[in-house]
């Protein structure tokens, strides 16, 4: 599998203090990758370093197989900045024309792409209005249109829904899903954990400038999760077999709830039930929300 983003010990220090430190990330092509972290954790610094707004202090990174700083690869990269500030004296259409020129798009491509991205972000009909008359949500949408203009293979979205209402957020999620279906890679930086949980294939948590954990959102919560087992009958012998592998939270006549230390203990748990002669009808770990994982990780670090 090709990597859209790869970083190795990528570090950016501001006056000796860390913006982000020794970041090692691998984002596969076609994934939606979520970066999570509290304010001041280094999320924006990492994004800015990757898109070329700041120069790394040390380490290396590559985007779509090209080293950081390569200008030509940017033709395939879209970026929605967090503050989405654009030249207000332009109309929406003129702004997109300007960005199309910056992407060195030819006239025919522009003619087809501009109406398309306007339609995707829901701004068709508003393109003749000046950007200064746009609402905050519309500005974020035109920013998204600029990012999608070159039909990029890799898109960096820094808080893409911060100014949008719930309907707008859903639309952005749909845009991201649509891009993913077309094999595009999305690097999403967001505070909205539920949003990240809904769309991301991979997430990483950053704190104090360092990545403290990363993985698939549906698997990350398995460590320390409570597992529910439905068996034919709960016997003392069965409980004795399970006890070394997991802490028994509760047990009934046919149900046991036990907390495992890591997700690797879950198959062992199933083996223990079957090995003791029990009949296992159902095994499921209770889903832990990304928010709980996020808060637990932050507490662990303190």
């Amino acid at each position: 599998m090709n990597l859209a983003i790869e970083t190795e010990n990528l570090t950016k220090l501001y006056d000796g203090s860390a913006g982000c430190k020794e970041i090692c990330l691998s984002v596969e092509e076609g994934q939606i990758f979520g970066l999570l972290g509290p304010n001041g954790a280094g999320k924006s610094t990492l994004v800015k370093t990757l898109v070329g707004l700041v120069r790394p202090t040390s380490g290396s990174a590559s985007l779509l197989g090209r080293p950081l700083g390569n200008v030509e690869v940017r033709r395939k990269i879209g970026f929605l900045p967090e503050n989405f500030s654009y030249h207000e004296w332009l109309t929406g259409r003129q702004l997109l024309e300007f960005h199309a020129s910056l992407y060195k798009m030819d006239r025919w491509t522009r003619k087809s792409r501009i109406p398309l991205v306007l339609d995707v972000v829901g701004l068709t009909g508003a393109e003749r209005k000046k950007v200064k008359t746009y609402s905050k949500g519309m500005r974020q949408r035109i920013g998204m249109a600029c990012a999608l203009l070159p039909d990029p293979d890799l898109v960096f979205l820094d808080e893409p829904t911060s100014a949008l209402d719930p309907l707008g957020r859903r639309e952005v999620r749909e845009i991201m899903q649509g891009l993913k279906e077309r094999g595009k890679t999305i690097f999403l930086n967001s505070h909205l954990l539920s949003e990240v949980e809904m769309v991301c294939d991979q997430v990483a948590f950053i704190k104090g400038g360092r990545i403290i954990d990363q993985g698939r959102p549906d698997q990350m919560g398995a460590d320390g999760a409570v597992v529910e087992l439905h068996v034919d009958v709960v016997s003392d012998g069965l409980l004795d077999k399970i006890s070394p592998l997991a802490r028994i939270v509760s047990s009934g006549s046919t149900t046991i709830r036990a907390a495992v230390r890591s997700r690797e203990d879950i198959p062992e748990l199933a083996r223990a039930v079957v090995g003791s002669g029990g009949r296992l009808y159902r095994l499921a770990h209770e889903k832990v929300s990304l928010e709980e994982i996020f808060i637990n990780l932050l507490k662990e670090g303190d």
Partner: peptide, 12 residues
């Protein structure tokens, strides 16, 4: 204003 962020990240 931040408007330069979307310009610098273009292929130039």
């Amino acid at each position: 204003s931040g408007s330069i962020q979307a310009v610098i990240t273009k292929p130039l």
